Amino acid sequence: MLTNTATAKLAPQTELSAQQATLMQQLLDFSAEHLATRQTGLFVIKGAAGTGKSVVLSALINTLQQASQNASSPFYRTHNYLLVNHPEMLKTYKQIAATQASLHKKDFMKPTPFINQLTKQKRMADIVLVDEAHLLLTKSDRYNRFTQENQLTEICKHSRIVILVFDEHQVLKMKSYWNNTKLAAFLADRPHETFQLTQQFRVHAQPATQHWLTALGTQGKLLPRPLDPTFDLRIFADASQLYQQLRQRDHEYGLARLVATADFPYKLDGQTYYVTAPGFRLPWDKNMDPNVTWAERPATLDEVGSIYTIQGFDLNYVGIILGPAVGYDPATRRLKLIPDKYQDHEAFKRRADLSEQQAQQVKQQIILNSINVLLQRGRYGLYLYASDPKLRAQLLAL
């Protein structure tokens, strides 16, 4: 079934799968127990892109806010919030709040305003849900007005219960650098539970295709391309041809968008910057609408989206341009990631707690994570073009 909006899955009334329903009940039991014992608790929801982590959070915040008005509920008069650092996701949640009697826009915040507000008011929240927790800052950031060292630490200081979703393969900046090891160290001396979501809901493809996408996005591994009549996976030698085919899919089915790795110049100075390839030139996304997400505006078919506008969203078809920082190593038959060619300089802001060697490894992981985020957007099709000639030839040869 084709999706009509990029965010339809997040409606609180969306029917949960058996695994999601089990998780939902576990979250409610965990929260009720920790509220009753007044013991701080953390609950971590893990799962790859497309496994429905945000779907569960949306249903949970709606259930909690309804229960907070019910005198017979263990959640009566609780003060609960959903936090997310991703501005496009925050728009989505606020759109949802406008349609639900039990939700208010003030229930949804970015982490820094939440931390600063509760610090100033000297109060505690009850249950705090954190979507895309892999985007939480792990160092101070003047641009985001965050003066402490770790957003998750500060959220825990002001919350009785914290429920967060986490995927180490979606970390996109050094200032929010997390991995499973760092998270395990954070949780080690705190009461916590973990639940792993495994069922893929976004990519409607056979297991071999899903494995192909996962191997490329998490290991940089190029496997033989599977033949899959259920998923339209194509490799293009020409970016312009890819774009024309994608426009046709949008005309036929809607929600087809072009995205690219952050390998093309871009500055926040009001000027227009372009993603280019031989015979191809389109502007980067200009996310000017404060209320409607980039993927849901028809005009954005004529732009190129980035990881920052598309992470967390569903498309029917996605076209991806892999930029110059993504090459090919024939010796390992894997992607060759070149940080010096990556244009998202904000993502690579240096941190003192990493050696030069560690920083290089993290930079390569960030580039790979950005590829992984983009690869997992399309429900029914993925069109791929590589700027690097060697990588393009290898992809076509698959």
Rank of each mutant, 00 (worst) to 15 (best):
S73N: 03
G254I: 01
W178T: 00
K363L: 10
A386D: 04
P278A: 08
L391P: 00
Q394T: 04
A185F: 10
A48K: 09
L395K: 02
S102A: 15
S355W: 06
F166L: 04
Y383D: 14
T276F: 00
E296I: 00
P330H: 12
Y266H: 12
G220Y: 05
K94H: 01
R234F: 01
F264W: 08
F114D: 08
P229L: 13
H192A: 11
I61K: 03
K46E: 08
K122V: 02
I366D: 03
F201I: 01
G254Q: 10
P324L: 08
P113Q: 06
I371N: 01
V304F: 00
N369M: 01
N180R: 08
A18I: 11
W212H: 12
G305V: 05
R38G: 04
Q311T: 08
T214N: 14
A71S: 15
P224I: 10
P290M: 06
A393H: 08
P324M: 05
Q117D: 14
A18H: 06
V130W: 04
S240C: 07
R202A: 12
Y253A: 13
T218W: 05
M1L: 07
R160N: 14
A262F: 10
L35D: 15
Q65P: 09
K53E: 13
N372I: 03
K221D: 15
Q358V: 07
Q245P: 07
T293C: 09
K349R: 14
R257F: 01
P207S: 06
A98T: 02
I338P: 00
H204Q: 15
F186S: 04
H34N: 13
H251K: 10
L337P: 00
L384Q: 06
S54G: 02
V165T: 15
S176Q: 09
L90D: 02
P207V: 11
Q117I: 02
T14P: 11
H79T: 15
H158Q: 15
T92F: 00
L398I: 12
A393T: 04
D250R: 05
D126Y: 01
W284G: 05
L2P: 15
Q19C: 05
N150C: 03
A295L: 13
D289W: 00
P224M: 13
R190C: 03
T153C: 11
S17G: 02
F30E: 01
E132V: 02
K175G: 01
P87S: 08
T181F: 05
V292P: 08
A262L: 12
K341A: 10
T218C: 09
N291V: 14
A18L: 13
D285H: 07
R145W: 05
N70I: 14
P111A: 11
H79C: 13
A67G: 06
Q357L: 02
H192W: 06
Q65N: 11
Q13T: 15
S58T: 14
L16V: 08
F108D: 08
Q357K: 09
R334W: 07
W294N: 09
G323K: 10
R202Q: 12
L172D: 11
E132T: 02
S68W: 01
F280D: 03
F166I: 00
E33G: 06
K139D: 14
D289V: 13
H251W: 08
Q394S: 13
H86I: 06
V326E: 07
L129R: 04
D285Q: 10
Q199I: 12
P324H: 07
S306T: 14
Y328D: 07
L258K: 09
D131P: 11
F108H: 02
K106E: 12
Q360E: 07
V292Q: 06
